[in-house]
Structure formats: structure tokens, C-alpha cells
Design a protein around this nucleic acid. Structure first.
Length: 836
RNA sequence: GCGAGCGUGGUGGAAUUGGUAGACACGCUGGUCUUAGGAACCAGUGCCUCCGGUGUAAGGGUUCGAGUCCCUUCGCUCGCACCA
């Protein structure tokens, strides 16, 4: 394959941009508000493995978009940084003794070099790394603002604990009962924690979604996660006691059908209400439940378990005596940790009642409750004052009744839990608090920030819920800032998500050592106009960052309620893998393509099917950007990633596809090196140019990069047939291809004799008349089927079209003797003749 | 189970408001040039019983006309999951 000198060209322009500070950006007040854009990438965690092909996908998209916006005359902020606190570096430190700071900074170095090799137009002067003390000084400062606002609290509660990462996890970090990071099964464990009251912002986080230009699926994920539900809390008096059990239900209308109650095994009342006779069974059940992990509790969901406490409660609506059971299908962390069971109209209760032979009373007509619970709508029966009413009406009627009788009230519940904001590990921001024996918890004075991480030799967590910092006496022991007594520093560190909660703000003013962010910079740039990243952060980073931003807004520190106005998720880059008939996957290097295009496993000679799978080391289908850039160049690599398919959709990597794009750029180069002429180009080429300018402009604007590239290919395929390079065509084409292939673009611009670079040239405007065809191919249909075609001058009126259609020989023969019912005529498109 | 989305050639994918299905690219086939090429260039390429028919997961509907709109079914992907 012949190669244009991409290596030389790319090095040359990267050096030029760097040395000339081409993409440094200032808060220039001469740009009005609408001529400013803040385009943000999700910054990477600098792992030891380096960049994978997924990173440059989003980065290329934003880079193209930014370069396009600059040419449209906008002042564009486009920064990059590193999310550099995190477990891998720390685990590596435990294994090798190398300080995480050393590993992290080496990795950052490597990442930065790799990112730069792709020719992105970042303003590197604004780079931030979350692990640097100048940065985390302000992360700690924001934490203090949250603490002072009463949004951070200390608690010793059972939480998700990863035995491999040796740290507590937030709810959001647990997937299918396993640690999101390492896949280990999560345990329940009582550990001291710092927790942020994200639930205080549940409604704001929910309502704010309405104002955002995000995909519906992403908004749905956040809504699901917040999980708002409306219902009622209902009070049940216990028999022979003054105690009251409160339950939460979304179906207060079914109260007449409540035949028993169930408490979570951890419910505080279990201890007091259990009768002597039942004590043994209850204690055993609680012990068994506590031994189970969350995963086991859900896995066993199919078969309900439970035990009777011996106690009875009184149904407030009819005075009926109903038994109180405990079962682990009731979660202590949701609602009140207790339910009223309505087996006729709730499938879980139905299963439980069926298993333990508890009564099932139908209170809504419409289903067959001997087979399953009926959860649909219908008229109420056996329900006193609700009889005859439908679901909605009886819910509100019942709530009014309960409120009147002081037996309950309308209640809103959320699935969202408070955020466990703590890691019992070393490599994170120390929480800037001090425990004083006299004053209690005292904040570190703001002027003493940052509380820096002490140097340690042993990074190993104690495994007893203590961070390695607890062993560092010089760090732990301090004086209380209030009373001067000997006190102890907090040794829990913040989770990795802390730094990424506000990095987009620090980019605006990265050098400021007076404030976390100046008002002026915030006013100039915020909010983020376009934020691009993967879906994996749908409920983690994006929820946490929105929460912090809302707190900062309430404190008057930022001027918008939402940080990220528009968000676009890139699709994942997957890879091909091969599957045996039994569905097991075969590593790519153990498969060969046979002559008929099918794939066989080399060892067995058996046919395997080509399927799409995630890139993984074990399947040997991971592609390394460095190799691709070395072989094809950064411009080819960038352009291929954009050509693969729609940006938001996941798509499989194909190195053959990359070589196709590379071939295209070779052809571009070939044209660029032809004899340059100021002659008037042929009219048909001018037409294709303007069609191309239009398509590339509209598609780039809409981030439909794949079709923009296809149009540029069409342009080159035509131009290629002529042996000259027409300046009139080539100058605008070079300008529109430049955001996609910026190195090649600049080089060709220089070859055209320009002294100035093209990065800030104006984007070429197409001329609409020149995009229009003079002639159109119009199809003639009979009963909707294409029977003939004719070439006709564009804009030919209906009457003329019809006349021409009926003059067509084939049409004459097909319509002869037929009854013509009507004729539909769409100018420039078709004539449809309906016959019988 | 709930929520979101998707099914188009051998492959990745194109198709304004419903208006010529398969743009562009990969792969494949044939040819030209070359000492050679996994280079370059040219031509062809949905399928079939090939002057015709058929075709966008399957079936039905609306319409002069459906990949696109509506209904049913099937399949796949992602997220959540005993959330009362």
C-alpha cells in the first residue's frame, strides 16, 4: 500500500500547534455569549494499559466539532485532564511498593503523549489532575461547604463492602451484587462511613432532567435510579401494645385486603414484639438472613422465606387482627422497612401467602386471584367506603380517610439512597475533618487546606475498615483548631468520584489559588454546551456531579442549576469474536477465515460464527491506537473511528475498514500533489463541491460524522477522474476536511500557498443554487411499482410530467385498454399511474 | 418482571416531510499495469427460475405509494431488579 507521508506531516503540525500555542483560549469579552462554546470530554483515568480505541472516539468527535466551531467564528473552550486518584495505582503500590504518585504521573505522561499524537486541539494550559494537591485542595474545600450545609454525616451502618478492593462501595458501584470495578461478590459489613445526603436533592435531580438536552434513555436511567414513588405511610397499632408499626405502600386503596404484615429482619421492632414461643425461630431466621450477602438474598428470591413473630397488628381500616411476620424480601433500607401484605394484589405477597397458607382477600375485581395476584385496575369490592371505585379514585379517597383519622399520610419514597462517600484506602483526597475529644467533629480551617496525603511506605489497608492513613501518627495526631486539645484527623479518604464532580469547573480557572473558581470565568463559559462520554457513567459520575453542582448553586457559587446542558453518549467500540455452536467464544488468534468467507477454528477445523463482543484481553481482540497510528497515521485513525457508523451507536472495530479510509486519504493526497490550476473547473465538479459543502456542514453540525465522510469520498471519487487540481474546488474542500484530518488539512492548505494556518479560517459556505441538479431522473410507476424512468429538466411542472409519462412507450403498452383511475405526480420525483 | 432501544446485502452501514431501498466503505469476482505485491487503477457485485419476478425479522393494517406510520408476534442489546 503506498503511503502519503503522514508521519512527517503529523509530527510537523503537532509541533507547530504546540510551539505556537494555537489552541490556547482566553476569556475574550469581544465574543458575545452566543459566540462562546464549552465543549467537554469525560477525562480519562490514566491506567497503566494506556489509551484504548474507545477513548479517541469521543475525543475525535469533540475535536472535529470544536475545529468546526472555531471556523464558524466561535471562541471555544476545549480542555483535557486526568481523573488520577483511584484504586489501580494503589493496588499496584501494594504489590510492588512503588508509590501511586509515581505510577500515576508516569501513566499521565504516557496518556498525554498518546492523546497529543492524535492531534487534538486541546488547550493544554488548562490541564488538571485530580490527585495534585493544588487541585484536591479545592475538592476538600467543596467537601467542607457540603459538611457545613449539613449534607455530610458520619455513620456506622451496614454497607456494601468489596473484600478484594478492601473498601466500602456506594450503591451505584454495585452491579448484580458484585463490585463494579473488580467483579468480586460484595459483602454486607458494618463500617464507619462518611455519607453525603444526596437524597435531599432527589426531587431537584429528577426535575432538573426536564431542562436538559440529554438522550431519553439516559434520562430514563437517572429517573429509574432516583426511583421516585408516591404512596402513603399507614400506621398499624400493635395488639396489646401502644407501639405503632408504620408501613409504606403505593396501594393504600387495597388496605381492606391486607391480611398480614411483614417486617425486614433488621427492623427494630422485631426484638420487642416477638413472643416467647416464636423467639427461637425468629432469632434463627435473623441470624441466617444476616449471613446472606445481598446477592444470595436476591438469588433466593424465587422461593420466599419468613417466620411469624407471634405478634398481631390491627388493620386501621376495619379493626381486623392480622399476624406480623418477618422476611428478607423486605428491605430495611426502603420505605419504613415494613409492609402491609395484600396477597390478592401484589405478586410477592401472593407467593408468600400461598407458601405460608395465609388468607388472600380480593378487594379489586378483574383477575383470578387463585392463579396469581391481580395488579390491574378494576372496581373495588369488599372495601367498605371504596366499593365500586377505580384505582386512582380510591387511592386518593383512602389517603384522605387515613389523614383524617390520623392513621397515615401521603408519602413520597425514593429508591435513591444516600451516597457512601468514603474509601478506607490511601490514594484519595483526605477528608478535611478532625475528631476532637472535647469539641467533637471540627472542620480543618479553610486556610490550612489542602490536608495533604502523608508519605507512607505501606499502602496496605488494614482490612478492618481503617485506611492506611490510620497508621501514620504524624498525620493522625493533631491539635483541635478550636480548643487546641490533642485531636485526631479523619483517616477515611474520598471516593474516586469526588474529583470528577467538579473538574469541569476548575478548567475554567485552573491557576486560581484564591478561589476554586472565579466568578468571571464561571460567567464567561458555563454551562457546558456539549459534554461527550460513555454511558458507563449514566448513574455514577453524572448523578454525583449534578448533585454537587446543585449544592454549589444553592450556595451561590455557580450561576446555573445544571452543569451539562447537552450530553451525547458515544457508542462503544466493540470487536469481532468467534463463537462455537455451543455458544462458547474462541479467541481471535485461534480462528482463520476460509476461502468461502466462513470462519473455522484452527485446532478443530470446526466452523465458528462471527459475532460481536466486547474487546477483551482474553479474546485477543483488543486494538492498540499506537499501532494503528504508526501504520496508518492519526488522521486515518481519527477518520476511520468517525466513519465506522453513527457516533452514538456501538460498532465493531475492523482494521480493514481503517485501511479503506487510509486509501481515501491517499487519494486526497494524490489530488493535492497534482498540478494546481486557477482554471475554471468543470461545472459538474462545482456542483459536487457545493453538495459536499452542504452535506459536510449540516452533518458536522448534527454530529453525523459518518455520512459527512461518505460525502467527502464521493467528492474525491469524482475529482480523481480529472488530472488537475482546481484551486476553486480544492481550497474549500481542504477547509471542510480539515476538522476531520487536521494535519493533512494544514499541510494541503500550506501547499495551496497560504502563510496563515487554516484553523481559524472561515468555514466555507455552500451556494444553494449550485447544489441543485439541472436534470432529474423521474420514475414512472404503475400501481406503485417502478415501470420506467425518464430524465427531465428540474422543476418541470406536473402537467408536463404527466404528459411525458403517458408518451412513454412502455407505459403506453402497459396502460393500453386499462381503466386509469388516477395519476399522482410529485415534481422531480415520480409519476404514479393507478390503473384497474 | 419493569424501563429504554434496535432488527436493512457476505460485513460496517446509507436512505428530508411516507415518494427510485442498498449511498459510502469493507469483502468478493474479473481485468489493466508491474520482477513482485496483502500496492495502484478500471469494471462488476441484494436474491431468484435473470427480456421477468422478488426483497428492509415475521404476519396484518392505513395509503395511489411503507425500511419509514399503526397493531400483533418473534429475536437481540443495554439499564434496573423482591423498591412494597
Amino acid at each position: 500500500m503506498s503511503k502519503y507521508p503522514f508521519n512527517e506531516i503529523e509530527k510537523k503540525w503537532q509541533k507547530f500547534w504546540e510551539e505556537n500555542g494555537t489552541f490556547k483560549v482566553k476569556e475574550d469579552p469581544s465574543y458575545p455569549k452566543e459566540k462562546r462554546a464549552y465543549v467537554l470530554d469525560m477525562f480519562p483515568y490514566p491506567s497503566g494499559a494506556g489509551l484504548h480505541v474507545g477513548h479517541p472516539e469521543g475525543y475525535t468527535a469533540t475535536d472535529i466539532y470544536c475545529r468546526y466551531l472555531r471556523m464558524k467564528g466561535l471562541n471555544v473552550l476545549h480542555p483535557m485532564g486526568f481523573d488520577s486518584f483511584g484504586l489501580p495505582a494503589e493496588n499496584y503500590a501494594i504489590k510492588t511498593g512503588t508509590h501511586p504518585k509515581i505510577t500515576t504521573e508516569k501513566n499521565i505522561e504516557h496518556f498525554r503523549k498518546q492523546i497529543k499524537s492524535l492531534g487534538f486541539s486541546y488547550d493544554w494550559d488548562r490541564e488538571v489532575s485530580t490527585h495534585s494537591s493544588e487541585y484536591y485542595r479545592w475538592t476538600q474545600w467543596i467537601f467542607l461547604q457540603l459538611y457545613k450545609k449539613g449534607l455530610a454525616y458520619e455513620a456506622e451502618t451496614p454497607i456494601n463492602w468489596c473484600p478484594d478492593c478492601l473498601t466500602g462501595l456506594a450503591n451505584e458501584e454495585v452491579k448484580d451484587g458484585r463490585c463494579d470495578r473488580c467483579g468480586h461478590q460484595v459483602e454486607r459489613r458494618n463500617t464507619r462511613q462518611w455519607i453525603l445526603k444526596i437524597t435531599d436533592y432527589a426531587d431537584e435531580l429528577l426535575d432538573g432532567l426536564e431542562t436538559l438536552d440529554w438522550s431519553d434513555s439516559l434520562k430514563a436511567m437517572q429517573r429509574n435510579w432516583i426511583g421516585r414513588s408516591e404512596g402513603a405511610n399507614v400506621k398499624f397499632k400493635l395488639e396489646n401494645s401502644d407501639d405503632i408499626i408504620e408501613v409504606y405502600t403505593t396501594r393504600p386503596d387495597t388496605l381492606f385486603g391486607a391480611t398480614y404484615m411483614v417486617l425486614a429482619p433488621e427492623h427494630p421492632f422485631v426484638e420487642t414484639i416477638t413472643t416467647k414461643e416464636q423467639r427461637k425461630d425468629v432469632d434463627k431466621y435473623i441470624k441466617d438472613a444476616s449471613m446472606k450477602s445481598d446477592l444470595e438474598r436476591t438469588e433466593l428470591a424465587k422461593d420466599k422465606s419468613g417466620v411469624f413473630t407471634g405478634a398481631f397488628a390491627i388493620n386501621p381500616v376495619n379493626g381486623e387482627k392480622i399476624p406480623v411476620w418477618i422476611s428478607d424480601y423486605i428491605l430495611i433500607s426502603y420505605g419504613t422497612g415494613a409492609i402491609m401484605a395484600v396477597p390478592a394484589h401484589d405478586q410477592r405477597d401472593w407467593e408468600f401467602a400461598t407458601k405460608f397458607d395465609l388468607p388472600i382477600i380480593e378487594v379489586l375485581k378483574g383477575g383470578d386471584i387463585t392463579v396469581e395476584a391481580f395488579t390491574g385496575d378494576g372496581p373495588h369490592i369488599n372495601s367498605g367506603f371504596l366499593d365500586g371505585m377505580g384505582k386512582e379514585e380510591s387511592i386518593s379517597t383512602m389517603i384522605s380517610w387515613l389523614e383524617e383519622k390520623n392513621s397515615g399520610k401521603k408519602t413520597v419514597n425514593y429508591k435513591l439512597r444516600d451516597w457512601i462517600f468514603a474509601r478506607q484506602r490511601y490514594w484519595g483526597e483526605p477528608i478535611p475533618l478532625i475528631h476532637c475529644p472535647k469539641c467533637g467533629i471540627v472542620t480543618v480551617p479553610e486556610e490550612e487546606l489542602p490536608v495533604t496525603l502523608p508519605e507512607v511506605d505501606d499502602f496496605k489497608p488494614t482490612g478492618h475498615g481503617q485506611s492506611p492513613l490510620a497508621k501514620v501518627e504524624e498525620f493522625v495526631n493533631c491539635k483541635c483548631p478550636q480548643c487546641g486539645t490533642e485531636a485526631k484527623r479523619e483517616t477515611i479518604t474520598m471516593p474516586q468520584w469526588a474529583g470528577s464532580c467538579w473538574y469541569y469547573l476548575r478548567y475554567l480557572d485552573p491557576e486560581n489559588d484564591e478561589r476554586f473558581l472565579s466568578k468571571e470565568a464561571e460567567d464567561y463559559w458555563m454551562p457546558v454546551d456539549l459534554y461527550v462520554g460513555g454511558t458507563e457513567h449514566a448513574v455514577l459520575h453524572l448523578l454525583y456531579a449534578r448533585f454537587w453542582h446543585k449544592v454549589l448553586y444553592d450556595l451561590g457559587l455557580v450561576s446555573h442549576k445544571e452543569p451539562f446542558q447537552r450530553l451525547v453518549n458515544q457508542g462503544m467500540i466493540t470487536a469481532y469474536s468467534y463463537q462455537r455452536p455451543n455458544k462458547s467464544l474462541v479467541p481471535t488468534d485461534e480462528v482463520k477465515e476460509s476461502e468461502d468467507g466462513s470462519f473455522v477454528e484452527i485446532v478443530t477445523g470446526e466452523k465458528v460464527e462471527q459475532v460481536i463482543a466486547k474487546m477483551s484481553k482474553s479474546l485477543k481482540n483488543v486494538e492498540n491506537p499506537d499501532d494503528m497510528i504508526a501504520q496508518f497515521g492519526a488522521d486515518s485513525f481519527r477518520m476511520y473511528e468517525m466513519f465506522m457508523g453513527p457516533f452514538q451507536v456501538s460498532k465493531p472495530w475492523s482494521t480493514k475498514g481503517l485501511s479503506g479510509v487510509h486509501r481515501f486519504l491517499n487519494r486526497v493526497w494524490n489530488v493535492a500533489t497534482r498540478e494546481l490550476t486557477d482554471e475554471k473547473p468543470p461545472a459538474e465538479l462545482v456542483k459536487i463541491l457545493h453538495k459536499t459543502l452542504k452535506k459536510v456542514s449540516l452533518d458536522t453540525d448534527a454530529m453525523e460524522f459518518n455520512t459527512a465522510i461518505a460525502q467527502m469520498m464521493i467528492f474525491i471519487n469524482e475529482v480523481y477522474k480529472h488530472d488537475k487540481c482546481y484551486r476553486e474546488l480544492w481550497e474549500p474542500f481542504v477547509l471542510v476536511i480539515a476538522p476531520y484530518a487536521p494535519h493533512l488539512g494544514e499541510e494541503m492548505w500550506q501547499m495551496l500557498g497560504h502563510k496563515e494556518i487554516l484553523a481559524f479560517e472561515s468555514w466555507p459556505q455552500w451556494i444553494e443554487e449550485l447544489t441543485l441538479d439541472d436534470e432529474k431522473e423521474v420514475v414512472i410507476q404503475i400501481n406503485g411499482k417502478v415501470r420506467s424512468k425518464m430524465i427531465i429538466a428540474a422543476g418541470t411542472p406536473k402537467e408536463e410530467l404527466e404528459k411525458r409519462a403517458f408518451e412513454n412507450e412502455k407505459i403506453i403498452s402497459l396502460t393500453e385498454g386499462k381503466n386509469i383511475i388516477k395519476t399522482i405526480c410529485i415534481p422531480d420525483k415520480l409519476v404514479n399511474i393507478v390503473i384497474k
